[in-house]
Amino acid sequence: MIRVALLVAGKDLRVELRSRVLLWQVLPFGVIALLLSGLAVGPRASVTRNAAPGLFFVVILLVALLMIGRSHSVESRSGTRSSIKMLGLDPAGVFLGKALALFVTLGAASLVLLGGVVVLMHAPFAATLHALGPIALALGSISAGGTVYGVLVGDAEGQATLLPVVALPPLAGILVAGEKAFAACITGTSLVRWVIFLAVGLIAYLAVGILLYGVAEESA
């Protein structure tokens, strides 16, 4: 399972490196969305600092939706799905590999966006560094959950518009917990319960994906 996961993750990341979709399309979208959100909040530093965690997670969720759709559209191209099925790969390994690749690309996007949060929204640098752990947990949950929802939507008609409808409501809990954990780092309050919530979410999505990805893939 681990061997398949690393193989699939390596392939997905190579596809991303060669296509540069993250670099030239998704990241600019994320930066623009963050800028516009900052403008909507207004110029006062105290207000933007308080809003920064929430705006960061809303933007990263939008970026994640684009990346999830992208990750699954690569597999859904005419002919590719059949070919990959013919390799008879362990579906749990495929799920973990796709989730891992998504996590790495979302992590890269997050680092850029966090830089924007510090520079444009006056989030304290030290607190932002402190929040990297909880943010990584949240990104892991979004990656695992998004991979599950991506395969469930499959190549259904209107996949690009259906995915947000299916994925956003259940991922809202992760978004809220991530925002609370980030905000706790800024305000210096306890973030333990939010970290526990995010860890449970990650474990739950990993378990669901490992158990059900094959069934969803087979019926796609």
């Binding site: 190579r14 596809v15 060669r18 690569v74 002919g79 590719t80 013919m86 008879g88």
Partner: peptide
């Protein structure tokens, strides 16, 4: 799934990752 590992399939269309090179696809 076990059967599919032993059968070679060639469909109507190309069945590859377009962004990868010929060698990348075959190595995968």
């Amino acid at each position: 799934r076990l059967l599919r590992r032993r059968v070679g399939w060639l469909g109507h269309e190309g069945s590859f990752y377009d962004e990868l090179t010929v060698m990348d696809n075959l190595q995968f």
